[in-house]
Design a protein around this nucleic acid. Structure first.
Lengths: 211, 211
DNA sequence: GAAAAATGTTGACGGTGACAACATCCGCTG
DNA sequence: CAGCGGATGTTGTCACCGTCAACATTTTTC
């Protein structure tokens, strides 16, 4: 029973290892990339033995899934917040798109894990938002539903608003991916402000569709 | 010399191990996903010892990069072919987008490796096409240049055609990603024909921008 | 206060990427 | 045709990783 422990050390138990592991994982991915992530390294950074993570995550994949879940929650919140108070449906789609790309640029690791991991095929994530199977509330409607509603106001009756929403989703998603992959010349997307301007230009050019 | 060799065993040397490894790798990724790829498994499938791949690829990353290179070549070819003979600039953009998504759906492994791998940061790939440093011909202009040209004919003088081309690139790219990730409800994108119809609907809705 | 559940540790196993040293084969020069 | 050198494939090895089982410690519950 080690007595004189440093301010942080909680002797045997960690306190909130689960959260610490998630943070460590995000940090590691940011430094070494997704394939450079290892549970052991996360354990090391959390000052814990190499097998400790298995008390909180069944699997390496489970850890990534938890990260993705966190990301989807934040993305949905950002989308909802961006559309909040915006009345015109087209402006709502614009606002959503801008928030979407902004989120991706501000949280590259989360966004990558959300959409790059192969945990996709594995259940737990669906249609852009996390599925809470047997979850507590399940009140997370997903920002996609709001997209559909906004798109519905823009198209002819009889057309499928979900397809319009997909169009409204695909553009920011593609742009975000290209920016994150560095596929857009740095000259075009060096600073965040530049990215936002580019985004707005593109969305403006794209305005007028969906009808 | 070649001689009448039995279909398989070529005594000591393989014949064309490099290509065999690429094929094996694509196969493995298709079966087990990107993170399930291992050089040793590729070597096994090529009937070769576990270190043989290192005579052809400096690195696991080098293998992936070679796959990405192959993909970009084919994608560019498909894009060029799709636009060939199409006169109207807007129709050219449409044709490119359709070919783009079609390529992604038809070659999910290639597309994934092209845009998901972290080899992006490492040089060798740039702005959607492979950079042939000191390569032989380097005549690969990249389909992106054709996009820029087509977009240039659609926008006001003074606007940057590259930004318009980015808009024209982002939409199919995002759609392709979402389809590949299974993020689009299967009901919307179950069969290839369905995907193509969806694509055309989206592009039609999107028509009229860029001016 | 003891049993039970939760959490953390140690040790082990097979698989993997990467390298070094060695073996074999091919093509070329003389 | 001899043989030599480079290309290609092999064996052996090392550290690291994911995962599990067995064990230790702490907290919670009755």
């Amino acid at each position: 029973m080690p007595a004189g422990d440093t301010p942080s050390k909680r002797s045997y138990h960690h306190g909130d290892l689960r959260a610490a592991l998630l943070d460590a994982a995000i940090e590691v991915i940011g430094e070494r990339g997704l394939h450079g992530l290892s549970l052991r390294e996360c354990a090391r950074r959390a000052d814990v033995s190499h097998a400790a993570p298995y008390r909180h995550f069944a699997d390496k994949n489970a850890l990534l899934l938890a990260i993705a879940r966190r990301g989807f929650e934040r993305l949905a919140a950002a989308g909802v917040a961006a559309m909040d108070g915006v009345g015109d449906p087209r402006d709502r789609l614009d606002a959503y798109g801008v928030a979407y790309v902004r989120f991706a640029v501000d949280n590259p690791v989360l966004f990558r894990v959300m959409f790059t991991a192969e945990l996709d095929a594995a259940e737990g994530v669906e249609a852009g938002h996390v599925v809470d199977k047997g979850g507590e509330e399940g009140d997370e409607a997903g920002a996609f539903e709001l997209l559909v509603e906004s798109a519905a106001a823009l198209i002819d009756d009889g057309d499928d608003p979900r397809e319009a929403a997909l169009a409204a989703w695909s553009l920011p998603h593609g742009l975000a991916m290209l920016v994150l992959d560095g596929r857009i010349p740095p000259a075009e997307a060096a600073t965040p402000a530049q990215v936002e301007r580019l985004m707005r230009t593109i969305f403006a050019a794209w305005r007028g569709p969906l009808s």
